[in-house]
Design a protein around this nucleic acid. Structure first.
Lengths: 267, 267
DNA sequence: CGCCGCATTGACGTTCGTCAAGTCTAGTGG
DNA sequence: CCACTAGACTTGACGAACGTCAATGCGGCG
Protein backbone atom coordinates (compact mmCIF):
# COMPACT_ATOMS: atom_id res chain seq x y z
CA UNK A 1 0.00 0.00 0.00
CA UNK A 2 0.91 3.63 -0.44
CA UNK A 3 3.09 2.86 -3.42
CA UNK A 4 1.56 5.78 -5.21
CA UNK A 5 1.43 8.13 -2.30
CA UNK A 6 5.08 9.04 -2.23
CA UNK A 7 4.74 11.95 -4.61
CA UNK A 8 4.91 15.30 -2.98
CA UNK A 9 2.20 17.92 -2.96
CA UNK A 10 4.28 19.88 -5.42
CA UNK A 11 4.35 17.12 -7.99
CA UNK A 12 1.79 16.66 -10.72
CA UNK A 13 -1.52 15.95 -9.04
CA UNK A 14 -3.61 12.84 -9.56
CA UNK A 15 -6.19 14.75 -11.52
CA UNK A 16 -5.94 18.37 -12.31
CA UNK A 17 -8.86 20.79 -12.64
CA UNK A 18 -6.20 23.35 -11.89
CA UNK A 19 -2.74 22.40 -13.06
CA UNK A 20 -0.26 23.02 -10.30
CA UNK A 21 3.04 22.30 -12.00
CA UNK A 22 4.87 25.62 -12.05
CA UNK A 23 6.17 26.90 -15.31
CA UNK A 24 8.84 28.58 -13.25
CA UNK A 25 11.81 26.47 -14.26
CA UNK A 26 11.97 28.28 -17.55
CA UNK A 27 12.78 31.50 -15.77
CA UNK A 28 16.26 30.26 -15.02
CA UNK A 29 16.90 29.18 -18.58
CA UNK A 30 15.50 32.24 -20.33
CA UNK A 31 15.50 35.04 -17.78
CA UNK A 32 14.02 37.51 -20.24
CA UNK A 33 11.62 35.21 -22.01
CA UNK A 34 9.06 34.72 -19.22
CA UNK A 35 8.72 37.39 -16.62
CA UNK A 36 7.40 36.93 -13.11
CA UNK A 37 3.72 37.20 -13.88
CA UNK A 38 0.39 36.29 -12.36
CA UNK A 39 -1.27 36.47 -15.75
CA UNK A 40 0.39 33.24 -16.85
CA UNK A 41 0.52 31.55 -13.44
CA UNK A 42 -1.38 28.31 -13.02
CA UNK A 43 -2.29 29.26 -9.48
CA UNK A 44 -4.01 32.48 -10.51
CA UNK A 45 -7.45 31.09 -9.75
CA UNK A 46 -6.33 30.37 -6.21
CA UNK A 47 -4.64 33.57 -5.19
CA UNK A 48 -5.86 36.31 -7.54
CA UNK A 49 -9.27 37.72 -8.40
CA UNK A 50 -11.23 36.33 -11.32
CA UNK A 51 -12.88 38.14 -14.19
CA UNK A 52 -10.21 40.71 -14.95
CA UNK A 53 -9.77 42.17 -18.40
CA UNK A 54 -6.39 42.14 -20.10
CA UNK A 55 -5.44 45.64 -19.00
CA UNK A 56 -6.16 44.80 -15.38
CA UNK A 57 -4.29 41.50 -15.65
CA UNK A 58 -1.23 43.35 -16.88
CA UNK A 59 -1.38 45.70 -13.93
CA UNK A 60 -1.90 42.90 -11.43
CA UNK A 61 1.36 41.36 -12.57
CA UNK A 62 3.07 44.32 -10.96
CA UNK A 63 2.08 43.30 -7.44
CA UNK A 64 4.61 40.49 -7.56
CA UNK A 65 8.00 42.08 -7.13
CA UNK A 66 10.00 38.87 -7.14
CA UNK A 67 10.06 35.26 -6.13
CA UNK A 68 11.85 33.70 -3.25
CA UNK A 69 12.84 30.11 -2.56
CA UNK A 70 12.77 28.83 1.01
CA UNK A 71 14.50 25.60 2.00
CA UNK A 72 12.74 23.12 4.21
CA UNK A 73 13.05 24.22 7.84
CA UNK A 74 13.88 27.83 6.96
CA UNK A 75 11.63 30.74 7.85
CA UNK A 76 9.89 33.06 5.42
CA UNK A 77 9.50 35.61 8.21
CA UNK A 78 9.76 35.66 11.98
CA UNK A 79 7.95 37.20 14.90
CA UNK A 80 9.29 40.73 15.38
CA UNK A 81 10.56 41.23 11.85
CA UNK A 82 9.55 44.31 9.95
CA UNK A 83 6.51 43.73 7.76
CA UNK A 84 6.77 44.76 4.15
CA UNK A 85 5.11 42.17 1.96
CA UNK A 86 2.48 39.52 1.69
CA UNK A 87 3.54 36.21 0.21
CA UNK A 88 1.62 33.96 -2.16
CA UNK A 89 2.77 30.37 -1.94
CA UNK A 90 3.70 28.93 -5.33
CA UNK A 91 4.98 25.57 -4.21
CA UNK A 92 5.64 23.92 -0.88
CA UNK A 93 3.98 23.86 2.46
CA UNK A 94 4.24 26.18 5.47
CA UNK A 95 3.25 26.37 9.08
CA UNK A 96 2.67 29.60 10.97
CA UNK A 97 3.16 29.70 14.72
CA UNK A 98 2.95 32.17 17.57
CA UNK A 99 4.86 31.96 20.84
CA UNK A 100 4.01 33.13 24.33
CA UNK A 101 6.64 34.95 26.35
CA UNK A 102 7.49 31.88 28.38
CA UNK A 103 8.33 29.85 25.32
CA UNK A 104 5.24 27.78 24.65
CA UNK A 105 4.29 27.89 21.06
CA UNK A 106 1.19 27.24 19.08
CA UNK A 107 0.87 26.37 15.40
CA UNK A 108 -1.86 28.69 14.09
CA UNK A 109 -2.15 27.23 10.61
CA UNK A 110 -0.76 25.19 7.74
CA UNK A 111 -0.60 26.84 4.33
CA UNK A 112 -0.26 25.36 0.87
CA UNK A 113 0.04 26.46 -2.76
CA UNK A 114 -2.16 29.40 -3.69
CA UNK A 115 -2.62 30.60 -0.11
CA UNK A 116 -1.44 33.93 1.26
CA UNK A 117 0.70 34.42 4.35
CA UNK A 118 1.86 37.53 6.17
CA UNK A 119 -1.49 39.21 6.96
CA UNK A 120 -0.59 39.32 10.65
CA UNK A 121 2.08 41.93 9.97
CA UNK A 122 -0.16 44.69 8.63
CA UNK A 123 -1.49 46.04 11.90
CA UNK A 124 1.77 46.85 13.67
CA UNK A 125 4.09 46.84 10.69
CA UNK A 126 5.89 43.92 12.31
CA UNK A 127 5.15 40.25 12.06
CA UNK A 128 3.70 38.59 15.15
CA UNK A 129 4.27 35.00 14.12
CA UNK A 130 6.79 32.79 12.35
CA UNK A 131 6.23 31.24 8.94
CA UNK A 132 8.31 28.09 8.51
CA UNK A 133 8.64 26.00 5.36
CA UNK A 134 7.83 22.33 5.99
CA UNK A 135 9.22 21.42 2.60
CA UNK A 136 11.27 23.27 0.02
CA UNK A 137 9.06 26.10 -1.15
CA UNK A 138 8.77 29.07 -3.43
CA UNK A 139 6.70 32.19 -2.84
CA UNK A 140 5.74 35.30 -4.76
CA UNK A 141 6.78 38.42 -2.86
CA UNK A 142 4.07 41.08 -3.01
CA UNK A 143 5.11 44.38 -1.40
CA UNK A 144 2.11 45.57 0.56
CA UNK A 145 2.53 49.18 -0.51
CA UNK A 146 2.13 48.08 -4.07
CA UNK A 147 -0.94 46.04 -3.22
CA UNK A 148 -2.54 49.03 -1.54
CA UNK A 149 -1.65 51.32 -4.40
CA UNK A 150 -3.04 49.02 -7.03
CA UNK A 151 -6.13 48.08 -5.11
CA UNK A 152 -7.11 51.75 -5.06
CA UNK A 153 -7.35 51.53 -8.82
CA UNK A 154 -8.43 47.98 -9.54
CA UNK A 155 -11.67 47.44 -7.66
CA UNK A 156 -11.55 43.66 -8.12
CA UNK A 157 -8.17 43.56 -6.40
CA UNK A 158 -9.40 45.68 -3.53
CA UNK A 159 -12.35 43.37 -3.05
CA UNK A 160 -10.06 40.38 -3.29
CA UNK A 161 -7.71 41.62 -0.58
CA UNK A 162 -10.67 42.21 1.72
CA UNK A 163 -11.97 38.73 1.06
CA UNK A 164 -8.63 37.08 1.73
CA UNK A 165 -8.41 38.78 5.11
CA UNK A 166 -12.03 38.01 5.94
CA UNK A 167 -11.49 34.38 4.94
CA UNK A 168 -8.60 34.16 7.36
CA UNK A 169 -10.78 35.56 10.14
CA UNK A 170 -13.49 33.01 9.39
CA UNK A 171 -10.94 30.20 9.26
CA UNK A 172 -9.62 31.17 12.67
CA UNK A 173 -13.18 31.26 14.02
CA UNK A 174 -13.44 27.64 12.95
CA UNK A 175 -10.20 26.74 14.69
CA UNK A 176 -11.44 28.41 17.85
CA UNK A 177 -14.57 26.27 17.70
CA UNK A 178 -12.39 23.21 17.29
CA UNK A 179 -10.04 24.10 20.13
CA UNK A 180 -12.77 25.26 22.43
CA UNK A 181 -15.35 22.55 22.13
CA UNK A 182 -14.14 19.39 20.41
CA UNK A 183 -12.61 16.22 21.79
CA UNK A 184 -9.40 14.69 20.46
CA UNK A 185 -11.04 12.42 17.88
CA UNK A 186 -13.22 15.20 16.58
CA UNK A 187 -10.25 17.53 16.25
CA UNK A 188 -8.15 15.07 14.29
CA UNK A 189 -11.05 14.08 12.05
CA UNK A 190 -11.79 17.72 11.30
CA UNK A 191 -8.13 18.32 10.60
CA UNK A 192 -7.85 15.44 8.12
CA UNK A 193 -11.05 16.41 6.33
CA UNK A 194 -9.91 20.00 6.02
CA UNK A 195 -6.50 19.03 4.65
CA UNK A 196 -7.81 16.55 2.13
CA UNK A 197 -10.48 18.98 0.97
CA UNK A 198 -7.91 21.69 0.31
CA UNK A 199 -5.62 19.23 -1.45
CA UNK A 200 -8.50 17.98 -3.56
CA UNK A 201 -9.24 21.55 -4.65
CA UNK A 202 -5.66 21.58 -5.94
CA UNK A 203 -6.09 18.44 -7.96
CA UNK A 204 -4.90 15.81 -5.49
CA UNK A 205 -6.66 12.73 -4.29
CA UNK A 206 -9.76 12.93 -2.13
CA UNK A 207 -8.69 10.01 -0.05
CA UNK A 208 -4.93 9.91 0.11
CA UNK A 209 -2.48 12.43 1.50
CA UNK A 210 1.04 12.86 2.74
CA UNK A 211 1.37 14.83 5.93
CA UNK A 212 4.09 17.42 5.69
CA UNK A 213 4.20 18.03 9.44
CA UNK A 214 5.18 16.00 12.50
CA UNK A 215 2.78 14.61 15.08
CA UNK A 216 3.99 17.31 17.41
CA UNK A 217 3.07 20.05 14.94
CA UNK A 218 -0.34 18.51 14.37
CA UNK A 219 -0.75 18.33 18.14
CA UNK A 220 0.23 21.94 18.60
CA UNK A 221 -2.27 23.03 15.99
CA UNK A 222 -5.04 20.92 17.54
CA UNK A 223 -4.23 21.71 21.16
CA UNK A 224 -3.16 18.13 21.89
CA UNK A 225 0.07 16.37 22.83
CA UNK A 226 1.84 14.35 20.17
CA UNK A 227 1.09 11.09 22.00
CA UNK A 228 -2.61 11.85 21.88
CA UNK A 229 -2.39 12.51 18.16
CA UNK A 230 -0.59 9.24 17.64
CA UNK A 231 -3.07 7.30 19.76
CA UNK A 232 -6.00 8.87 17.95
CA UNK A 233 -4.53 7.89 14.60
CA UNK A 234 -4.16 4.35 15.92
CA UNK A 235 -7.77 4.32 17.03
CA UNK A 236 -8.93 5.43 13.57
CA UNK A 237 -6.88 2.60 12.07
CA UNK A 238 -8.40 0.05 14.47
CA UNK A 239 -11.84 1.28 13.51
CA UNK A 240 -11.00 0.85 9.83
CA UNK A 241 -11.52 4.52 9.05
CA UNK A 242 -8.03 5.24 7.75
CA UNK A 243 -4.78 3.53 6.89
CA UNK A 244 -1.73 5.22 8.35
CA UNK A 245 1.90 4.51 7.64
CA UNK A 246 4.00 7.23 9.14
CA UNK A 247 3.03 10.37 7.25
CA UNK A 248 1.09 8.61 4.55
CA UNK A 249 -2.62 8.59 5.22
CA UNK A 250 -5.37 6.96 3.21
CA UNK A 251 -8.92 7.74 4.16
CA UNK A 252 -11.06 4.61 3.83
CA UNK A 253 -14.32 6.05 5.08
CA UNK A 254 -14.89 9.77 4.71
CA UNK A 255 -18.42 9.53 6.10
CA UNK A 256 -17.18 8.06 9.37
CA UNK A 257 -14.81 10.99 9.73
CA UNK A 258 -17.66 13.40 9.09
CA UNK A 259 -19.78 11.60 11.67
CA UNK A 260 -17.01 11.95 14.20
CA UNK A 261 -16.78 15.70 13.60
CA UNK A 262 -20.54 16.18 13.68
CA UNK A 263 -22.04 13.41 15.76
CA UNK A 264 -25.56 12.73 14.62
CA UNK A 265 -28.00 12.97 17.48
CA UNK A 266 -30.54 10.17 17.02
CA UNK A 267 -33.46 10.70 19.34
CA UNK B 1 -17.19 46.89 48.66
CA UNK B 2 -18.19 47.37 45.05
CA UNK B 3 -20.37 50.32 45.96
CA UNK B 4 -18.87 52.23 43.08
CA UNK B 5 -18.71 49.38 40.64
CA UNK B 6 -22.36 49.33 39.74
CA UNK B 7 -22.04 51.84 36.97
CA UNK B 8 -22.17 50.30 33.53
CA UNK B 9 -19.48 50.44 30.91
CA UNK B 10 -21.60 52.98 29.11
CA UNK B 11 -21.62 55.40 32.02
CA UNK B 12 -19.12 58.14 32.53
CA UNK B 13 -15.77 56.48 33.19
CA UNK B 14 -13.67 56.96 36.29
CA UNK B 15 -11.15 59.04 34.45
CA UNK B 16 -11.44 59.90 30.84
CA UNK B 17 -8.55 60.36 28.41
CA UNK B 18 -11.25 59.67 25.85
CA UNK B 19 -14.72 60.68 26.93
CA UNK B 20 -17.18 57.93 26.21
CA UNK B 21 -20.45 59.61 26.99
CA UNK B 22 -22.32 59.74 23.72
CA UNK B 23 -23.64 63.04 22.52
CA UNK B 24 -26.26 61.01 20.72
CA UNK B 25 -29.29 61.90 22.82
CA UNK B 26 -29.43 65.27 21.13
CA UNK B 27 -30.20 63.61 17.83
CA UNK B 28 -33.66 62.74 19.02
CA UNK B 29 -34.36 66.26 20.22
CA UNK B 30 -32.99 68.13 17.22
CA UNK B 31 -32.99 65.69 14.34
CA UNK B 32 -31.56 68.27 11.96
CA UNK B 33 -29.22 69.97 14.36
CA UNK B 34 -26.54 67.26 14.71
CA UNK B 35 -26.08 64.78 11.96
CA UNK B 36 -24.67 61.31 12.34
CA UNK B 37 -21.00 62.14 12.11
CA UNK B 38 -17.67 60.61 12.96
CA UNK B 39 -16.03 64.01 12.91
CA UNK B 40 -17.71 64.97 16.17
CA UNK B 41 -17.80 61.51 17.75
CA UNK B 42 -15.93 60.95 20.95
CA UNK B 43 -14.97 57.46 19.85
CA UNK B 44 -13.27 58.64 16.70
CA UNK B 45 -9.81 57.81 18.01
CA UNK B 46 -10.91 54.24 18.61
CA UNK B 47 -12.59 53.34 15.36
CA UNK B 48 -11.37 55.81 12.73
CA UNK B 49 -7.96 56.73 11.36
CA UNK B 50 -6.01 59.60 12.87
CA UNK B 51 -4.37 62.54 11.18
CA UNK B 52 -7.06 63.40 8.67
CA UNK B 53 -7.53 66.92 7.34
CA UNK B 54 -10.91 68.62 7.43
CA UNK B 55 -11.84 67.64 3.88
CA UNK B 56 -11.11 64.00 4.58
CA UNK B 57 -12.98 64.14 7.88
CA UNK B 58 -16.05 65.42 6.09
CA UNK B 59 -15.90 62.56 3.62
CA UNK B 60 -15.36 59.96 6.33
CA UNK B 61 -18.63 61.04 7.89
CA UNK B 62 -20.32 59.51 4.88
CA UNK B 63 -19.31 55.97 5.76
CA UNK B 64 -21.84 55.97 8.58
CA UNK B 65 -25.24 55.57 6.97
CA UNK B 66 -27.24 55.43 10.19
CA UNK B 67 -27.29 54.28 13.74
CA UNK B 68 -29.07 51.31 15.16
CA UNK B 69 -30.06 50.47 18.73
CA UNK B 70 -29.98 46.85 19.87
CA UNK B 71 -31.68 45.72 23.04
CA UNK B 72 -29.92 43.43 25.44
CA UNK B 73 -30.21 39.85 24.19
CA UNK B 74 -31.06 40.88 20.63
CA UNK B 75 -28.81 40.11 17.67
CA UNK B 76 -27.08 42.65 15.48
CA UNK B 77 -26.68 39.97 12.81
CA UNK B 78 -26.91 36.22 12.62
CA UNK B 79 -25.10 33.38 10.94
CA UNK B 80 -26.44 33.03 7.41
CA UNK B 81 -27.73 36.57 7.06
CA UNK B 82 -26.72 38.60 4.04
CA UNK B 83 -23.69 40.77 4.72
CA UNK B 84 -23.95 44.42 3.83
CA UNK B 85 -22.30 46.52 6.52
CA UNK B 86 -19.67 46.68 9.16
CA UNK B 87 -20.73 48.01 12.55
CA UNK B 88 -18.84 50.30 14.88
CA UNK B 89 -19.99 49.92 18.46
CA UNK B 90 -20.94 53.24 20.03
CA UNK B 91 -22.22 51.99 23.35
CA UNK B 92 -22.86 48.60 24.85
CA UNK B 93 -21.20 45.24 24.78
CA UNK B 94 -21.44 42.34 22.34
CA UNK B 95 -20.43 38.74 22.01
CA UNK B 96 -19.83 36.99 18.70
CA UNK B 97 -20.32 33.25 18.44
CA UNK B 98 -20.10 30.50 15.87
CA UNK B 99 -22.00 27.23 15.96
CA UNK B 100 -21.16 23.78 14.65
CA UNK B 101 -23.81 21.83 12.76
CA UNK B 102 -24.63 19.68 15.74
CA UNK B 103 -25.47 22.64 17.91
CA UNK B 104 -22.39 23.24 20.01
CA UNK B 105 -21.43 26.83 20.02
CA UNK B 106 -18.34 28.80 20.75
CA UNK B 107 -18.02 32.44 21.75
CA UNK B 108 -15.30 33.86 19.49
CA UNK B 109 -15.02 37.28 21.09
CA UNK B 110 -16.42 40.06 23.25
CA UNK B 111 -16.59 43.52 21.73
CA UNK B 112 -16.95 46.93 23.35
CA UNK B 113 -17.28 50.59 22.38
CA UNK B 114 -15.08 51.65 19.50
CA UNK B 115 -14.60 48.14 18.16
CA UNK B 116 -15.76 46.90 14.77
CA UNK B 117 -17.89 43.82 14.15
CA UNK B 118 -19.03 42.12 10.98
CA UNK B 119 -15.69 41.41 9.27
CA UNK B 120 -16.57 37.73 9.01
CA UNK B 121 -19.25 38.50 6.43
CA UNK B 122 -17.02 39.96 3.73
CA UNK B 123 -15.67 36.75 2.23
CA UNK B 124 -18.94 35.01 1.37
CA UNK B 125 -21.27 37.99 1.51
CA UNK B 126 -23.04 36.23 4.35
CA UNK B 127 -22.30 36.34 8.03
CA UNK B 128 -20.85 33.20 9.54
CA UNK B 129 -21.42 34.08 13.18
CA UNK B 130 -23.96 35.73 15.46
CA UNK B 131 -23.40 39.09 17.14
CA UNK B 132 -25.49 39.37 20.30
CA UNK B 133 -25.82 42.43 22.52
CA UNK B 134 -25.01 41.63 26.16
CA UNK B 135 -26.40 45.00 27.21
CA UNK B 136 -28.47 47.63 25.46
CA UNK B 137 -26.27 48.92 22.69
CA UNK B 138 -26.00 51.33 19.82
CA UNK B 139 -23.93 50.87 16.67
CA UNK B 140 -22.96 52.93 13.65
CA UNK B 141 -23.99 51.16 10.45
CA UNK B 142 -21.29 51.43 7.80
CA UNK B 143 -22.31 49.96 4.44
CA UNK B 144 -19.30 48.05 3.19
CA UNK B 145 -19.74 49.26 -0.39
CA UNK B 146 -19.35 52.78 0.86
CA UNK B 147 -16.26 51.86 2.87
CA UNK B 148 -14.66 50.31 -0.19
CA UNK B 149 -15.56 53.26 -2.36
CA UNK B 150 -14.18 55.79 0.04
CA UNK B 151 -11.06 53.84 0.89
CA UNK B 152 -10.10 53.96 -2.77
CA UNK B 153 -9.86 57.71 -2.41
CA UNK B 154 -8.79 58.28 1.17
CA UNK B 155 -5.54 56.40 1.64
CA UNK B 156 -5.67 56.69 5.42
CA UNK B 157 -9.05 54.97 5.46
CA UNK B 158 -7.81 52.17 3.24
CA UNK B 159 -4.85 51.61 5.52
CA UNK B 160 -7.15 51.74 8.51
CA UNK B 161 -9.48 49.06 7.16
CA UNK B 162 -6.53 46.79 6.48
CA UNK B 163 -5.22 47.32 9.98
CA UNK B 164 -8.55 46.57 11.61
CA UNK B 165 -8.77 43.27 9.77
CA UNK B 166 -5.16 42.41 10.51
CA UNK B 167 -5.70 43.26 14.17
CA UNK B 168 -8.57 40.83 14.30
CA UNK B 169 -6.39 38.11 12.78
CA UNK B 170 -3.67 38.75 15.36
CA UNK B 171 -6.22 38.78 18.17
CA UNK B 172 -7.54 35.41 17.07
CA UNK B 173 -3.98 34.07 16.92
CA UNK B 174 -3.72 34.98 20.58
CA UNK B 175 -6.95 33.21 21.42
CA UNK B 176 -5.72 30.12 19.61
CA UNK B 177 -2.58 30.18 21.76
CA UNK B 178 -4.75 30.47 24.83
CA UNK B 179 -7.10 27.66 23.82
CA UNK B 180 -4.36 25.41 22.56
CA UNK B 181 -1.78 25.61 25.29
CA UNK B 182 -3.01 27.20 28.52
CA UNK B 183 -4.52 25.70 31.64
CA UNK B 184 -7.74 26.95 33.21
CA UNK B 185 -6.12 29.44 35.59
CA UNK B 186 -3.94 30.87 32.86
CA UNK B 187 -6.91 31.28 30.56
CA UNK B 188 -9.01 33.10 33.09
CA UNK B 189 -6.13 35.32 34.18
CA UNK B 190 -5.39 36.25 30.57
CA UNK B 191 -9.06 36.95 30.00
CA UNK B 192 -9.35 39.29 32.97
CA UNK B 193 -6.16 41.15 32.08
CA UNK B 194 -7.30 41.61 28.51
CA UNK B 195 -10.73 42.91 29.53
CA UNK B 196 -9.41 45.34 32.11
CA UNK B 197 -6.75 46.62 29.75
CA UNK B 198 -9.32 47.38 27.06
CA UNK B 199 -11.65 49.01 29.57
CA UNK B 200 -8.78 51.09 30.92
CA UNK B 201 -8.03 52.33 27.39
CA UNK B 202 -11.63 53.59 27.41
CA UNK B 203 -11.22 55.46 30.63
CA UNK B 204 -12.38 52.90 33.16
CA UNK B 205 -10.62 51.59 36.22
CA UNK B 206 -7.52 49.45 35.90
CA UNK B 207 -8.58 47.23 38.74
CA UNK B 208 -12.33 47.05 38.80
CA UNK B 209 -14.78 45.76 36.25
CA UNK B 210 -18.29 44.52 35.76
CA UNK B 211 -18.59 41.40 33.65
CA UNK B 212 -21.31 41.75 31.07
CA UNK B 213 -21.42 38.01 30.34
CA UNK B 214 -22.38 34.87 32.24
CA UNK B 215 -19.96 32.24 33.52
CA UNK B 216 -21.16 30.02 30.72
CA UNK B 217 -20.23 32.61 28.08
CA UNK B 218 -16.83 33.13 29.64
CA UNK B 219 -16.40 29.38 29.67
CA UNK B 220 -17.38 29.06 26.04
CA UNK B 221 -14.88 31.73 25.06
CA UNK B 222 -12.11 30.11 27.10
CA UNK B 223 -12.90 26.51 26.17
CA UNK B 224 -13.97 25.63 29.73
CA UNK B 225 -17.18 24.59 31.43
CA UNK B 226 -18.98 27.15 33.55
CA UNK B 227 -18.23 25.21 36.74
CA UNK B 228 -14.52 25.38 35.99
CA UNK B 229 -14.76 29.13 35.46
CA UNK B 230 -16.57 29.49 38.76
CA UNK B 231 -14.09 27.30 40.63
CA UNK B 232 -11.17 29.18 39.14
CA UNK B 233 -12.66 32.50 40.25
CA UNK B 234 -13.02 31.02 43.73
CA UNK B 235 -9.41 29.93 43.71
CA UNK B 236 -8.27 33.45 42.75
CA UNK B 237 -10.35 34.81 45.63
CA UNK B 238 -8.81 32.31 48.09
CA UNK B 239 -5.37 33.35 46.89
CA UNK B 240 -6.23 37.00 47.47
CA UNK B 241 -5.71 37.95 43.85
CA UNK B 242 -9.21 39.24 43.18
CA UNK B 243 -12.47 40.02 44.91
CA UNK B 244 -15.53 38.62 43.17
CA UNK B 245 -19.14 39.31 43.90
CA UNK B 246 -21.26 37.91 41.13
CA UNK B 247 -20.27 39.88 38.07
CA UNK B 248 -18.34 42.54 39.93
CA UNK B 249 -14.62 41.87 39.92
CA UNK B 250 -11.89 43.84 41.67
CA UNK B 251 -8.33 42.94 40.84
CA UNK B 252 -6.20 43.15 43.98
CA UNK B 253 -2.94 41.98 42.48
CA UNK B 254 -2.35 42.51 38.79
CA UNK B 255 1.18 41.14 38.97
CA UNK B 256 -0.03 37.80 40.29
CA UNK B 257 -2.40 37.56 37.36
CA UNK B 258 0.45 38.32 34.97
CA UNK B 259 2.59 35.67 36.67
CA UNK B 260 -0.16 33.14 36.20
CA UNK B 261 -0.39 33.90 32.48
CA UNK B 262 3.37 33.86 31.99
CA UNK B 263 4.91 31.65 34.66
CA UNK B 264 8.43 32.83 35.36
CA UNK B 265 10.91 30.01 35.06
CA UNK B 266 13.46 30.43 37.83
CA UNK B 267 16.44 28.21 37.23
C1' DC C 1 -43.23 37.05 48.54
C1' DG C 2 -41.96 33.63 45.51
C1' DC C 3 -40.02 32.47 41.26
C1' DC C 4 -36.28 31.98 37.96
C1' DG C 5 -31.86 32.33 36.15
C1' DC C 6 -27.26 32.44 37.46
C1' DA C 7 -23.58 31.06 40.42
C1' DT C 8 -21.25 28.09 43.77
C1' DT C 9 -19.72 23.84 45.69
C1' DG C 10 -19.02 18.84 46.25
C1' DA C 11 -18.41 14.02 44.68
C1' DC C 12 -17.12 11.35 41.08
C1' DG C 13 -15.71 9.97 36.19
C1' DT C 14 -13.38 10.66 31.78
C1' DT C 15 -10.13 12.39 28.86
C1' DC C 16 -6.00 13.68 28.01
C1' DG C 17 -1.16 14.71 29.63
C1' DT C 18 3.15 12.81 31.53
C1' DC C 19 6.81 9.73 31.76
C1' DA C 20 9.17 5.99 30.02
C1' DA C 21 10.42 2.27 27.04
C1' DG C 22 10.82 0.57 22.69
C1' DT C 23 10.28 0.63 17.32
C1' DC C 24 10.64 2.40 12.79
C1' DT C 25 12.67 5.06 9.07
C1' DA C 26 15.39 8.14 6.44
C1' DG C 27 19.67 9.91 6.00
C1' DT C 28 24.83 9.49 6.50
C1' DG C 29 29.10 7.75 5.91
C1' DG C 30 32.12 3.97 5.57
C1' DC D 1 25.62 -2.00 -0.06
C1' DC D 2 25.16 -2.06 4.67
C1' DA D 3 25.66 -0.44 9.41
C1' DC D 4 24.79 3.33 12.37
C1' DT D 5 22.37 7.10 14.23
C1' DA D 6 19.12 10.71 15.22
C1' DG D 7 14.67 12.01 14.95
C1' DA D 8 10.05 10.70 14.58
C1' DC D 9 6.59 7.66 15.97
C1' DT D 10 4.08 4.13 18.84
C1' DT D 11 2.49 2.10 22.98
C1' DG D 12 1.70 1.32 27.93
C1' DA D 13 1.01 2.68 32.81
C1' DC D 14 -0.30 6.15 35.66
C1' DG D 15 -1.95 10.67 37.36
C1' DA D 16 -3.80 15.37 37.04
C1' DA D 17 -6.99 18.49 35.22
C1' DC D 18 -11.16 19.26 33.85
C1' DG D 19 -16.02 17.69 32.81
C1' DT D 20 -20.40 15.82 34.56
C1' DC D 21 -24.09 15.47 37.61
C1' DA D 22 -26.48 17.06 41.41
C1' DA D 23 -27.61 19.84 45.37
C1' DT D 24 -27.77 24.33 47.19
C1' DG D 25 -27.40 29.40 47.51
C1' DC D 26 -28.09 34.03 46.02
C1' DG D 27 -30.17 38.10 43.88
C1' DG D 28 -33.22 40.50 40.91
C1' DC D 29 -37.80 41.15 39.28
C1' DG D 30 -42.58 40.78 38.65
Amino acid sequence: MFDEATKTHSAVPVHAPIAIKPAGELVDMHPHAIKVACSNCNLRELCMPLGLNQAELDRIDDVVASRRKIKRGATLFRNGEKFSSLYAIRTGFFKTCVASEDGRDQVTGFQMAGEIVGLDGIVNEHHTCDAVALEDAEVCVMPFERIEELSREVTALQRHVHKIMSREIVRENGVMLLLGSMRAEERLAAFLLNLVQRLHARGFSQSELVLRMTREEIGSYLGLKLETVSRTFSKFVEDGIVEVKQRHVRILNTDSLKDIVNPKVCD
